[in-house]
Design a protein around this nucleic acid. Structure first.
Lengths: 188, 188
DNA sequence: ACCTGAACACCGTTCAAGT
DNA sequence: ACCTGAACACCGTTCAAGT
């Protein structure tokens, strides 16, 4: 009972994310994280190299949270699901989401996400030479919306307006991608 | 000659922007700005309320730098020019550009920029009811690209690739907006 | 009117201890 | 192996002086 709390990298990241979620990214300080874990500030340094490493860990958590779509569904449904998932992550963690800016997204989880999009685009009939660029631009557009919403650029608008904005953005992207091939007419 | 350096709000903002430009936003500290102006840190507080106000000032400088297109040109040329101008500003001030996130863009300069886009969209034939939303999404898309580039999300790619990405993004947007009306056939 | 000195609370980080 | 205490450099900010 009086035992010292067990600390670990995962717990540190969870605590940091919670602080970011309800007090903003600036509130994520080594002192604040330690305090939430009922531990001295210096105890953290045994589990994370420094604050930058802690932030990198937060990014990894966010990327891992992106839901990967079920492999069975049609390519356009998978892309829509991923875009919606990215937006949902941004809304769940508005403070931490800004960390995705300026980090090279070369972690395994990030590569998996990118690879999933590549696959969908190839199925959509995008020429191999254009797949990488298309993925980059799609990611940039969806990411741009998500970070704008997360950081409050739309704060003066009603939620319904923002939701409709996102729906319209998805319509724009659908107009840019090839029309989904209709394989069967009528119902299943 | 031995006179104390004259300090002013404009000079402070200029110094802060220079530091952000060549050492990043984190290097913009009250101490660093004061040092560049050869003045004590506390001298700054006579001209800016606090650090947040200084950052707000930086945002205003950035927005004022957005070039407004010549009113005579065609609407699609004006929009392209503005998109290119936003990207150029982001490239010139990559550190400070991130500040545009999370500030309500309701300053006079920001309203002027938005109004200019609204006008172009009305000329393009966008229904009045859709103009505001279209502007919001166009801004989000262009802004998303600019901030991704500024914060180094594309850092692993050659400049030529990034330039072509931007060109392709503009082509996407052209496909979404109405086709420009051809008023005269042949050359002028 | 404008700048400076001294001071305070806070932050990231290191290092030598403690158990 | 893991946590703590003491300490340091740095940062934003205030306030009472100085000229």
């Amino acid at each position: 009972m009086g035992r010292t709390a067990q600390i670990g990298r995962a717990g540190i990241l969870a605590a940091a994310l919670e602080i970011a979620d309800d007090q903003g990214l600036d509130a994520v300080t080594m002192h604040a994280v330690a305090q939430r874990l009922e531990v001295t500030t210096m105890a953290l340094y045994r589990h994370v190299a420094n604050k930058a490493a802690l932030m990198d860990g937060l990014v990894e958590v966010l990327i891992t949270e992106f839901p990967l779509p079920a492999p069975g569904s049609a390519w356009h449904e998978r892309l829509t699901a991923m875009a919606t998932g990215v937006r949902a992550t941004a809304r769940r963690h508005p403070g931490a989401f800004a960390l995705l800016l300026g980090r090279p997204t070369v972690t395994p989880a990030a590569l998996t996400v990118r690879h999933t999009v590549h696959e969908a685009l190839r199925e959509a009939g995008i020429p191999d030479a254009d797949v990488a660029r298309t993925e980059r631009l799609l990611a940039t557009v969806v990411f741009g919306f998500a970070i704008s919403e997360a950081t409050g650029r739309f704060r003066h608008h009603d939620q319904a307006v923002i939701d409709e904005d996102f729906a319209e953005l998805l319509r724009w992207l659908r107009r840019i991608l090839p029309a989904p091939q209709v394989r069967e007419s009528g119902k299943t």
